[in-house]
Every structure is written in C-alpha cells, then in structure tokens.
Design a protein around this nucleic acid. Structure first.
Lengths: 167, 167
DNA sequence: AACCAAATGGTAAAGATATGCAAGTAGCTT
DNA sequence: AAGCTACTTGCATATCTTTACCATTTGGTT
C-alpha cells in the first residue's frame, strides 16, 4: 500500500477514493482478476463507480508500475499486483492462473541480441498445462469430444484441386 | 504444408479451399498476425471469405496443433505457425512480437509442484522491452508524455497550454 | 454419380476497451 | 480556512474482437 501512495506522490497525482478502492481490491486477491471482476469487487464499496473508471485506473496503475497486466491467451486482460518477479502456470482449459515462485527461474540467460535492436526490460515464464480440476473433467469429456470424425480414409490420391471458389 | 494435409487426413476432415488459403497465409509470414490481419491477407485470394470462417479455421488449427495462439497482453490474439519450442520478445510500446531461439532457454527447470495438482505440458518465455523503432520515438515523445504533473506549479507562472481548448 | 457429415457465409450480438466532454475532487497555494 | 487548477471521474458512444444461429454449399467416400 505504501507503493501506492509513493507512486502517486512522486508524480503529483491525486489519490482518489476510486483509485484507493481499486488498489485495495487488487491487493486483496491473488487470483489475477480481470477488469470486470475488479469492477464487481469495487462496486461493493463504491456502488456508483463506473466500469470505465476501473479500466482507466488499471491502465494508469500499469503505467505507474503498480500492477502488471499479465499476458493471457483469452480476451480479457488479467491484472496482478506486481511485487517481485514471479511466473505463472496457466491452465489451458479453464484459464486459471497460478503463481510460481522458483528462484531458479529468476536468473535465466537473456537471449543474445543486440541491445540496440531490442532492449529487454524483464521476462516472465509461462507454464502451460492443466489444473487438477480440469484434468478430471477432461478425462470424462474426452469421450464425446471428437465423435470419431469420418475415419477410415484410405490414403487415396488427395488431389489438391486448387481451384478458385466456384460460382 | 505436409503437416496441414496430414493433420486433416488423419482425422478425416475435409480440406477446403478456405482452410488451405488460411494456412498458406499464415505460413507465409513470421510476424505473428492477428486473425484480422490473416482475414485481410486471405481475402486477396478469396474475396468472399467470411471473417467468421477465418476465426473458426484458426480455432480449428489450434485444436489440430497446426498453429499456436500466442499469449499476448492486448486484446487481439496472435497466431504463429512455428511449432518447435521458441520464445518471444514483446515490445511494450508497439506490441510487435519477435521470435527468440536460444537453446539455453529450452531446458529450464520446471517448478516443483505436485503433478497431481497441475500437470505442465510446456512453457514459453516472454521477454518484455522495447524495439529499436519504439525506443527512438519514445525518446522524442517522452517530453510531452507526462507534463511534469503539477509538482512545479507555482500558481501563476507555468501555464501548459496543452489543455483542451477553452469553452 | 450420389450421398452424408462437416464447413461456410451473413447478420447480429456480446464482451472488452477507447474516446470526448461536463462536472467533481484532491492537493497545492495563499 | 478558502480558493484555484489540473487531474480524475461518469456517462454515453464508438470501435474492435470474437462468437451464435442456420440455411446452403462443399469435400470426400462408396
């Protein structure tokens, strides 16, 4: 929370009720919420806050270095109070993000590129896989997943009839 | 391109003109295009192709393991035809993605978690920083970027005219 | 050549984020 | 303590990306 006030004071930015509420909300949880989830959480204390304000505040926090927008394959960005370098497990099924702290991952070799071409600031390792819950359900669901398609394709000539779409 | 036919034949899925065009389009470029960019590219050959078809086809390619949907902080998903393990430089300003191949990064220690709780399949290192072009422009832009906030405001001296036009 | 499952196309909808402007507020200055 | 001013907020709207429905067409088999 000190970081929050310090970052604002350093740049002379006003500390508003909304900003404080959003920051408290994100500090209070470690599940990498989306902007929408934070909006819902903050609204319990500030019922009239606008969804756009939450988005704008989160964008400002990212610029201030207070939180990180974590890369995520899906569409909704996830936000993470950035405290120290850490990494993530991402479930390919449910999208859940789990923190990983492993000191061995914090001193990786940086790729050998010319700093004039690309200046690296930091990095972040993304482990992909499946969490316990999704492995259970996928085992069950795998039966009906791909209805066997139309197998039995004898490898006849595939004749790549490359034609333009017929009228 | 063999992978493309093989993957379809193996599952008995029909190889349509549209699928072939989308796959050729993504093979031809190494800049991790978005679905929209691929739609534009494909449309030069199949002017009547639907945007939705491109999205659906890309989703199918991901399921088939033909392309990867690369994690990206922004909203638009990026697609990548490279299948061997590689990593990415991501420019924080322009969002450009550059491939990194460094064998030292391909044998990282995996975090010590119970495989019953989370089963890791693979990983991927995300280096963040700024590309040459953006470093140039940001150096210039940094002047007007943060107008010094209001730290040095001594009431009547500074009047930064960058406000909206007066009503 | 005929058949069948799957793919395609078009519109509209849903979700997330950005923008422009009027009014409110935090924090400095007096 | 009161005033000033830039920053922030709220609201409505616009944009961008992705998805849903369903009639029609196409690819691959027999």
């Amino acid at each position: 929370m000190d970081r929050f006030f310090a970052a604002h004071r350093e740049r002379g930015l006003p500390v508003t009720t909304q900003r404080r509420a959003v920051f408290e909300a994100i500090l209070g949880r470690s599940d990498h919420p989306t902007a929408e989830q934070l909006y819902d959480a903050v609204r319990r204390q500030l019922p009239q806050i606008s969804r756009m304000t939450v988005h704008r505040i989160l964008g400002a926090f990212v610029s201030l270095g207070l939180v990180a927008r974590t890369p995520h394959p899906g569409s909704a960005a996830r936000f993470d109070p950035k405290l120290d370098q850490h990494h993530h497990l991402v479930c390919l099924d449910c999208g859940r993000i789990i923190d990983v702290e492993d000191p061995r991952l914090n001193r990786l070799p940086w790729p050998d590129i010319n700093p004039r071409e690309f200046q690296i600031e930091d990095y972040h390792v993304h482990f992909r896989g499946r969490c316990a819950g999704c492995r259970q359900s996928s085992k069950a669901a795998r039966v009906g997943q791909k209805p066997a398609a139309r197998l039995a394709l004898s490898s006849k000539s595939i004749k790549p009839g490359l034609k333009k779409a017929a009228p």
